[in-house]
Nucleic acid binder design. Structure first.
Lengths: 199, 199
DNA sequence: GATCGAGTAAACTGCAGAGTGTAATTTAGG
DNA sequence: CCTAAATTACACTCTGCAGTTTACTCGATC
């Protein structure tokens, strides 16, 4: 581990904090270097501009979201248990303080640029994982889903409405127990609509 | 109607556009006055500072949300029809282009300040209206709701997941027909969980 | 027709921030 | 110990922006 690598980390940590507090336009490179305990010149040796530093952080963010574990549908397991596992594919990000700090910053900053926003949203939400799961379960007869995209939005929407947006706005992280309840109630509501046993 | 009042409108319209595109820190008073086709001094005659202009816009925003019609529970009407009416209390804001433009800006700008964010969220979401409705319906026996706050979050969450957040991020307004579908499916899912007829 | 409220244009102040140049110093590692 | 790369301090340029000042123009109202 170079000293270089260490400095780089310091810079990124400081930049995340600064961008999160002030936003892109409000952040100052002087303050970032001061927070990182590094000379301003070193910041520019690592990142050629404020923009480049910001983009580097977005990439780290996307990486972290994509390292999240995926869930695949398995016909032999009870559908309710599997939906709860699926919920945790999103849920465990919600309890990760680093991820949520970044999420907060990214949501605020990317919203101004619709293209970037849509791109980041897709990367963060990993909608495909959820849609494929629900599709497989429907094909297997474990769920009865007339509109796949809508069902996916509803499942994720129920979780996010309780576990993501309130956190983004309040800054207070959800506890493991709270996320457990959120996922359970989401699953039950989802099954109330899409279970094949339903009248 | 004064000329003054007209100028004021021009300034506000220009400021909304500028703040939305650049954020508070990135917005420039010079550009705002240019966009408004008004001298910079006139801007300062109407609003004493950039901050004051921004706050004035937030107030307008909150006003508009609060002018939205309220829905009260009526025992004699079928619960499904009433829930659909309730959904429209949120839904008709989703199809209002001016409101959604403002919402986009406000969400992005207030997110950095948790206190301001929570305050605006409350004003915009008017959660109380929804909770009171659901509470009244439950008291009447038309719904069976074990956790009032959770049920309220779920109802609003289902609508927003499909009709608010996608619009905030993509910038493309939902059509009346789309919102109709969103409200109907939300209502059915909600009844699947909370209807007293449910096993 | 003098006055007054509102608007305008443009130059100006003061400051903060992005990014650079440089010479001196530290550090890693053979 | 020596070298090359990385880091540092700091002065410097340039730009843009918030907010002010001044001298001027309308148009209405008394």
């Amino acid at each position: 581990m170079d000293i270089t690598e260490g400095k780089r980390r310091q810079i990124i940590d400081a930049a995340v904090a600064e961008f999160r507090e002030k936003g892109f336009a409000g952040a100052s490179m002087d303050r970032i270097s001061a927070r990182a305990d590094v000379s301003k010149r070193t910041v520019y040796n690592h990142f050629s501009s404020k923009e480049a530093l910001f983009r580097a952080i977005l990439d780290i963010m996307a990486d972290r979201a994509n390292r999240a574990f995926d869930v695949v549908y398995v016909p032999s397991k009870p559908i309710r248990d599997q939906l709860i596992d699926l919920g945790w594919a999103e849920g465990h990000l919600l309890t990760d303080p680093d991820f949520m700090k970044l999420a907060r910053m990214v949501v605020g900053e990317t919203m101004r640029d619709p293209v970037l926003a849509a791109e980041m949203n897709e990367k963060m939400a990993r909608i495909a994982v959820f849609r494929e799961f629900i599709e497989a379960a429907a094909a297997d007869g474990a769920l009865k889903v007339p509109d796949l995209d809508r069902a996916t939005d509803q499942f994720l929407g129920l979780i996010k409405a309780q576990g993501f947006w309130p956190v983004v706005f309040s800054g207070e992280l959800a506890t493991h127990a709270q996320v457990t309840r959120i996922i359970e109630t989401t699953t039950d509501m989802f099954l109330g609509m899409y279970s094949p046993d339903h009248a």
